[in-house]
Design a binder for these strands. Structure first.
Length: 106
DNA sequence: GTATTGACCGTAG
DNA sequence: TCTACGGCCAATA
């Protein structure tokens, strides 16, 4: 795979099914890169259509909500998919967690 | 070309 | 338990 890590990140994020969330670290580990690349990729490439609202940090906290059009947009989108948000945090986060390493199994 | 930063994570004190 | 620091890759100034 000669694709850049960026392309891989977008590809993985796009593969996230509705009602599921993933973490920066999970994607980074799956791609063999560092979590910063994931967050930085989304922030620099917001022009690309990707369900970035399904990507949260290790604690299930919506850290990147501030980067969306509105601080509540991320929460609304997640709730729209059936994910409950409480205090800017994903409820049953571990259960809704979608890890590429587990789901894609390499 | 060098320095700093970024939507993070893990370990150490 | 909480706080602080390093690591990783790429982009911007």
């Amino acid at each position: 795979m000669k694709e850049r890590k960026f392309e891989d990140i977008y590809d993985v994020v796009k593969l996230i099914p509705e009602g599921r969330v993933t973490t920066y670290g999970a994607i980074a580990r799956y791609l063999g890169s560092s979590p910063r690349l994931v967050g930085w990729a989304l922030n620099s490439r917001t022009d690309i259509l990707i369900p970035a609202h399904r990507v949260v940090n290790r604690n299930g906290l919506l850290t990147g909500k501030m980067h969306f059009a509105t601080a509540t947009l991320m929460q609304e989108l997640l709730e729209q998919e059936g994910i409950k948000i409480e205090n800017d945090k994903v409820v049953d986060f571990q259960r809704k967690l979608w890890d590429p390493e587990i789901e894609l199994k390499l």
